[in-house]
Each structure stands twice: as C-alpha cells, then as structure tokens.
C-alpha cells in the first residue's frame, strides 16, 4: 500500500536561499514520524511546503493518492491534511470557541463538525470551560491545546505539528507527547517537527534527521535514538 504522504526530491527556496535541497521521505498511515535536526535545518520549511504555505520549488508531494505539490493551503485542510504551526498562532482576539469554529471552516459536513466539537471538548475539557474567553488570555500550554484542538476540528487524516513542545514547561511537554500518542491511537497519522529529540523518539515509530536542508539519516525511532547521527546533526549546524 502506498504511504499516506510521500515527498520526492522536495526543494524549497526563499529567494536565493535554498532552505530545503531535495529531500525524500514518506509518512505511512497510522505512523508517528518525527523530523529532527538543528534550527535552520529545513524542517519547518518542509512542513510549510507540504501544506502549501510556501511554494515547492522542485519535487513532488503525494497525499492520499493525489498530487498536492501545487495545492494551495486553503484546499488541503478539507482534504484531510493540516498543520499546527510553530508558535501555536492561535487567533488571540477571537474566543476559544471561535478559534475552534475556524478550525472547521472548510468542512461542509455538519454531522462531522458536530462530532469534532465533541471530540475536542472531550480531549480538552479546559477548552470547554474557557470557550468564551479570548484565546490570547490562555496560558502557553492551553494555547497549544487550542492550536491542536483547532486543527482537529477539520478531522485530519494527517496532522503535522511544528515544534509542539516549544516554550512549554516540562510537565506540559509531557502532556503534549501523551496527546500525540492518544491521537495516533484514535487513528490520526502524525508528522512532528521537534527539537526535543530523545523525548519525541520515545513516542515515534520512525524519524528523519535534517541538516543543512538535506536528510542525513533516517530509520526506526529506536535505531535513531542509539545512533551517533543525531548528536552530529545538532552539532554540525
């Protein structure tokens, strides 16, 4: 069976800067795949290119058997692919409930949206409690829950998370990683960019190591955890 997402020869440029220089990877259905590497290694650019927020310079991206290389961001969420961006980026001037409503913006099926409300409020009772509050007034951890909840409102098949543990207290980071496992158990496939290498490998199935815009290593989470590649990737950059 073909993987849920497959990128071949993916390149991303920002003007003259080549942020991603031809990477190949795949994410299989039901997997948790982590993308590791130092700052500026090209991980976030890769995720942004997958969801159409930055243009793909070269290469192709296949998602659920269709070519999404040139697809625009606003069409991918309804198709089942979404991203929780780095730094959470909740709409601070909108209420918690309005943020969640926006997460389901592109979804037409009313029954599906109703189920999504239930699911998100069950996963995150705190969001239900604070539903009338401005998102900007939530704590960092709650904002991360909201950002993930908002993405779940579209009932994604593949959920990409960009640095979900960034800037959170250790205890909250643990909750976020537990949540990732819970979501996988609920049938969501996950692609996660993380700085927190060891902790994320502990929950992942497989991983890719980025350095200088290229993939310099890949394998099962266990192998990567034991390999020397990992420390190298962080030190070289």
């Amino acid at each position: 069976m073909a993987p849920l997402l497959q990128a071949t020869g993916l390149e991303v440029h920002y003007g003259p800067v080549e942020a991603v220089r031809g990477v190949d990877f795949e994410i299989g259905e039901g997997e948790i795949v982590v993308f590791l590497g130092a700052n500026g290694a090209g991980k976030s650019s890769t995720l942004n290119a997958l969801v159409g927020l930055v243009p793909v310079q070269a290469g192709t991206v296949q998602f659920a058997d269709s070519d999404i290389t040139k697809a625009r961001a606003e069409t991918l969420t309804p198709a089942g692919l979404t991203l929780v961006p780095e730094g959470r980026r909740v709409f601070g001037t909108l209420s918690v409930a309005e943020n969640l409503l926006m997460g389901a913006y592109g979804i037409r099926d009313k029954a599906q949206v109703a189920a999504a409300w239930d699911r998100v409020y069950t996963l995150f009772p705190i969001l239900h409690e604070r539903r009338g509050q401005f998102a900007g007034t939530l704590s960092g951890g709650q904002q991360q829950m909201l950002a993930i909840g908002r993405a779940l409102m579209s009932n994604p098949k593949l959920l990409l998370l960009d640095e979900p543990s960034l800037g959170l207290a250790p205890k909250i980071v643990e909750q976020v990683f537990d949540l990732i496992v819970t979501l996988r158990d609920q049938g969501v496939t996950l692609g996660v960019v993380e700085q927190n290498a060891m902790q994320s490998l502990a929950i992942a199935d497989r991983g890719y190591i980025f350095a200088g815009g290229r993939i310099v290593g890949s394998g099962s989470a266990q192998d990567l955890g034991e390999s020397s590649l990992l420390s190298g990737a962080y030190l070289d950059a």
Partner: peptide, 10 residues
C-alpha cells in the same frame, strides 16, 4: 489577525 493560519483553516 493571521492570514497564513486562516488559510490553513481552509
């Protein structure tokens, strides 16, 4: 507030 993220929402 955030056009890029709004597009992500569809």
């Amino acid at each position: 507030e955030d056009f890029a993220v709004a597009r992500l929402m569809g």
